[in-house]
Amino acid sequence: MTFQIDSGIDLPGQELGLVSKMPAVENNGKVSRDDRKTVGDITHADPRMTCRDVHVWYGDKHALNDVDLDIGKNEVIAMIGPSGCGKSTFIRCLNRMNDSIDGCRVSGDLIMDGQDIYDRKMDVVLLRAMVGMVFQKPNPFPKSIFENVAYGPRIHGLAAAKTDIEEIVVTSLQKAGLWDEVKDYLDQPGTGLSGGQQQRLCIARAIAVNPEVVLMDEPCSALDPIATARIEELIDELREHYTIAIVTHSMQQAARVSQRTAYFHLGDLIEVGETDQIFTNPKHQLTEDYITGRFG
């Protein structure tokens, strides 16, 4: 398959002379930079979501090109790659957050529980209740901590009685590891918390709906190292109940929290594999270039 240089995406590789004709296999045994077929095993033994032939366009811009990937149950899968590589675009497809962007088109199969999530019959509200999302910047609502967490269960009608709501809020905050810090301030505004606490509040808000999958779009990029470490611990704990897809800029973070890693490059899924293997012995030249810091 040939690589189409897309004028809309900036091409760090091009500037470095990386995009040039080279043999299919380089002398160190890696797959050449020119070859954009996905390397590694894209499948999972027990998949929660199955994606095949996924393409995404923003207007004329081809943002994601033919991505095949399984996301397994109770695994943490990390998406890494340089800016503009399509990793955020990919996870935003998984709960159709791209719907609200003007001129965005998605094609291909994204199957969850045997149903295509882009199918006409699929209900976005239902999908998003099953696939929660945590965003780059902590975005608590300008409401109390309690109301922030109770928001999801309330709109979805998950709890009939007041005590049920309270129970959900408490367990969610406990799962998010925030309970001990905020249990006396539940009526204080969520926006008054520190950045790391806000992000954990957003995680609590997402899991209060009891989703099957939690998508995290660079959840630690706005946080300091200590808060980041706290979130990473939390992700590891959450793996027990949820499937987590995390986009991250930090390779160390991917190595620390994930079991599988997918490397994206300029809209292509380059390599998928066990996290250990990706970071110790990447099979693709581009993956190696990225993780060894040649660009990115």
Partner: peptide, 24 residues
């Protein structure tokens, strides 16, 4: 980000408007 946060949880547009945007 407020709209994204609410819609990411599965709120409909009107719920987002009535419960998040207007209060904010």
């Amino acid at each position: 980000a407020m709209r994204d946060g609410s819609e990411g949880l599965g709120a409909t547009k009107s719920e987002t408007i009535k419960k998040v945007i207007i209060p904010a």
